[in-house]
């Protein structure tokens, strides 16, 4: 699994990458009450604000971690945003995307580097 400094995790599965937020991020945000996801098929550039999430406290954006195309989104977290607090690394993934260049994943943080960031 790879990580961004914006507290996203990325899991490669063949030609696509599944993206969610880390347990650390979910805990820091508090209970989520609103999630807005992009449409599948949307072309995104790295650092585009593509997801809006709101916790009981405040609104935040989630940025596209890579250049590519959104292929699938997880409607379950739109219906039930607290799923993100309950299972951020599993059922509460946010979207899947097909990166323009899969090797861009290599430039992201590995688990040790991410853990050092949040320590």
């Amino acid at each position: 699994m790879k990580y961004t400094e914006e507290h996203e995790w990325l899991q490669q599965d063949g030609e696509t990458v599944t993206v969610g937020i880390t347990k650390h991020a979910a805990e820091a945000l508090g209970d989520l009450v609103f999630v807005e996801l992009p449409e599948p098929g949307t072309k995104v550039a790295k650092d585009d604000e593509i997801v809006v999430i709101e916790s009981v406290k405040a609104a935040s954006d989630i940025l596209a971690p890579l250049d590519g195309e959104i292929t699938e989104v997880n409607q379950a977290i739109v219906e039930n945003p607290t799923l993100v607090n309950e299972d951020p690394l599993g059922d509460a993934w946010f979207f899947k995307m097909k990166p323009d260049n899969m090797s861009a994943l290599d430039e992201l943080l590995d688990e040790a580097a991410y853990n050092a960031l949040i320590d």
Binding site: G30, D31, V33, V56, K57, T82, N85
Partner: peptide, 8 residues
């Protein structure tokens, strides 16, 4: 601001 139970 909150306890371990959480705001909701």
């Amino acid at each position: 601001v909150q306890y371990p139970l959480g705001v909701l």
